[in-house]
Design a protein around this nucleic acid. Structure first.
Lengths: 81, 81
DNA sequence: ATGCTATGTAGCATTAATGCAACATAGCTG
DNA sequence: CAGCTATGTTGCATTAATGCTACATAGCAT
C-alpha cells in the first residue's frame, strides 16, 4: 500500500517477445492493446527488466500465436531463432 | 513494505497441477522442494487461490514434465484429461 | 492413545508486477 | 521547423505472489 522498489528482479526470464512482435509487424502499443496491458509493460518485458505474471505470459503467447515455451525460457535463447 | 491482502486475485488461471503431481506420486512437499518453493504455495496454486509467476509456472512445468499450456490455462480444463 | 504425514486456513511481512504520468530522444513526414 | 510515432527512463502507487509460522483435522500407522 505504500512503497515500490522493483525493476530488476532476482529471477530473470528470457523472452523473444520483440522478435515475435516485429515478425507480426506490431508496435508495442498494438501488442499491449491486444494483450490488455500498458504499453510500457511490454517495454519492460522486452528489456527483461522483469518477468511477467503467468496470466500475462499466456495472453501474450496467445496474441503472438506462440507456445509459452517458445516465447519464454528460464535459460537464454540461442541466437537466430 | 507494510501490508498484504491477497488470496483470490481477479484474474484466475486454471491448472492441473494436482492431477499431474499425483500421477507422479508426489506429495505437495516433494513437488515444492523440487520446484524450490514453499509447500503451501503448491497448495494455494492447486486450490487456485492465486496464479503463479511465470518463473514458478516454468519450474513446475519442468518438474512435472509438462508443457506450460498443458498445465495452465486461462479457460477451464475439460474433465478427464 | 500417540505420532507422523498430508492437507486446509489464517495472518503478517516482503518483494515483484503493473499502471500511469512525465520527460527525453530519434526518425519520419509534411 | 513542427508534429507524430516508437521507444527508453524515472518515479510513485497499488496489488498480487510468495515465504513462513502456527494451528486444526483426517488418515494411517505402531
Amino acid at each position: 500500500m505504500l512503497f515500490s522498489m522493483s525493476r530488476n528482479p532476482e529471477e530473470p526470464v528470457y523472452n523473444r517477445i520483440e522478435e515475435a512482435r516485429l515478425a507480426l509487424g506490431l508496435s508495442r502499443q498494438e501488442l499491449a492493446d491486444k494483450a490488455g496491458v500498458h504499453y510500457q509493460t511490454i517495454g519492460y518485458l522486452e528489456r527483461e527488466e522483469y518477468s511477467p505474471s503467468l496470466v500475462l505470459a499466456l495472453r501474450i503467447a496467445k496474441t503472438l500465436n506462440q507456445e509459452v515455451s517458445e516465447l519464454f525460457s528460464l535459460t537464454p535463447f540461442k541466437k537466430g531463432k
